[in-house]
Design a protein around this nucleic acid. Structure first.
Lengths: 114, 114
DNA sequence: TTATCATATAATGATTTGCTTATATGTTCA
DNA sequence: TGAACATATAAGCAAATCATTATATGATAA
């Protein structure tokens, strides 16, 4: 199988989407763990609608997928996304955001509903 | 020397800048050749001020540098740019825009003033 | 079933973006 | 020097973006 190269307009659209600190950081976090909306709200210290709207953009573009677990909605990377490798190339170049999660745990705000 | 990782806000700023098809394509072209403004105008079939304004953003951010050659102003990648490697990671993942240049040559619009 | 928690959506407004038109600047050449 | 060419800048405007507030939806638990 010959790997199909991404087209310029698709690449530009992805970069535009990720050219926002909040969304870019979300993607970097999701590269390591699934996350639910309320965790993002806590991490970014942002309003719930603001976070919800950022996630929606990522979801509409196909970069993330959602799954409801009880009352929570979790998001994860969509590894079937057509240009997942391109996205991964980017997130791999970014620093781990692990501290944001450990910070959450300290505050007892980490959700886990396994 | 430990390679310093790019910070999230810097990365987001770069992606935002490159999240525009015209600017992204410019960077991909510049990865292969220096280019002058009038070539970009021909390639993108855009107005001269529009092109000039895109280039200015790239220049202000430090991604490209300019050099005047006679009446033309040429632009090239700034390989000394702090996050050049990050930028290169991106452009390397994009398809060559070589045809755009060969197209120009066919039309006799390629500038060369060596 | 109703209160509560988690999330999404809608409406609105301020800010940013990217073009256009008009004009200024800098270079070359007759 | 002045005309022509290449480029930059400024001003203005329409569209896009991103937050806010208010409200709707969906799930759980008492």
């Amino acid at each position: 199988m010959i790997k199909q190269s991404i087209e310029m307009d698709q690449a530009a659209a992805i970069l535009k989407l990720l050219g926002d600190k909040t969304r870019l950081t979300m993607m970097r976090i999701l590269a390591d763990h699934d996350c639910c909306v309320c965790e993002f709200v806590a991490i970014f210290d942002a309003s719930q609608p603001a976070i919800s709207q950022h996630i929606r953009k990522l979801k509409d573009a196909g970069l993330v997928k959602e799954s409801r677990r009880g009352q929570w909605v979790f998001y994860s990377l969509n590894r079937q996304y057509e240009h997942f490798e391109f996205v991964q190339l980017l997130t791999d170049a970014l620093p781990s955001q692990e501290e944001k999660l450990t910070e959450l745990e300290k505050q007892g705000k980490r959700i886990s509903c396994e």
